[in-house]
């Protein structure tokens, strides 16, 4: 009896969960589908979900007409560059805070977190003027630097929470066995730290890829990453739904795939370790 109820319940839950899941996902699905339509079909009434002539033409047009590869590369360089530089700065800091904690460690961590509370718009003008005066408006360098600094607290925090979980006793055991400091770091700590570093990297590439305040305000034609490039479709050009969809699909696909891999890290990273 109890079994029958739970079976029926599973069916209902399955149907409900799938319906809601598909509903939430639908705007993305619809964008991807529309990207394979012709412009006429994209605004056809009634709209068609699958039964139309699938075409890749929009992707060709977007690639050819709007310098899409340049903006894609800008996104890659900016998100990857800022993440790698951020890691280079943050790994030593998080490392020493996790393994050689002092009385100040907690205060430094909290203070780093507090820099994240500074609303971007509060420093928009200085950053804009500095970039202008240095001739760095619409340059990738400026964005790499800014995104590095914006995400640095998150990188330090994430790494810190991962490093903290490495059992320090294992080091002492290794030392007893006569391991040198070099082999300690190389063979024991690094392999244990790598998964944490990798997930920190993944999450930060995602955050940097989607950042849309500084990228919109500090770039124009040259250094614009995909966020800014897509925003240019808000002009009447946006009425070309199929092309808008193709550009959007290409912009979100890589990060969507990375994001699915980083679900777990996302929780830890964005809550600064408060929820794991």
């Amino acid at each position: 009896m109890a079994r029958a109820i739970s079976k029926r319940r599973t069916v209902i839950v399955t149907i409900l969960a799938w319906t809601i899941g598909l509903l939430i996902f639908f705007p993305i699905l619809w964008t991807v589908i529309t990207s394979f339509k012709t412009e006429a079909e994209a605004i056809a009434d009634p709209p068609s979900l699958f039964w139309f002539n699938w075409t890749l033409e929009n992707y060709n047009v977007v690639n050819a007409r709007s310098n899409y590869p340049l903006h894609f590369m800008n996104s890659v360089i900016i998100s990857l560059g800022s993440t790698l530089i951020g890691l280079a700065i943050a790994v030593p800091a998080a490392w020493s805070m996790a393994f050689v904690p002092s009385k100040q460690t907690k205060n430094i961590l909290m203070w780093m977190l507090s820099t994240k509370m500074l609303p971007s718009v509060g420093v928009l003008i200085p950053i804009y003027l500095i970039s202008r005066n240095l001739g760095l408006l619409d340059s990738r360098i400026a964005l790499v630097v800014i995104l590095t600094l914006i995400n640095l607290p998150i990188i330090v925090w994430m790494l810190y929470t991962y490093f903290k979980e490495i059992p320090i006793d294992i080091l002492e055991a290794a030392r007893m066995d006569g391991a040198s400091l070099k082999s300690e770091i190389l063979y024991i700590l690094t392999p244990m730290a790598l998964p944490g570093i990798a997930s920190t990297m993944l999450l930060n590439i995602i955050l940097a890829w989607n950042e849309a305040f500084w990228t919109l305000n500090l770039t124009a034609a040259k250094a614009a990453p995909l966020t800014a490039f897509i925003a240019s479709y808000s002009s009447p050009e946006g009425l070309f739904y199929a092309k808008l969809s193709a550009a959007s699909t290409m912009a979100i696909a890589p990060i969507l795939i990375m994001g699915w891999f980083s679900q777990k890290q996302l929780v830890r990273g964005l809550t600064f370790g408060a929820v794991k």
Binding site: T31, A251, I255
Partner: peptide, 20 residues
Amino acid sequence: LVIAPFFVMPTVSALVWKNM
């Protein structure tokens, strides 16, 4: 499926909702 919208960049989701 449920987590996906979080990874869509703000400009894309705004444009998709606005136009489509």
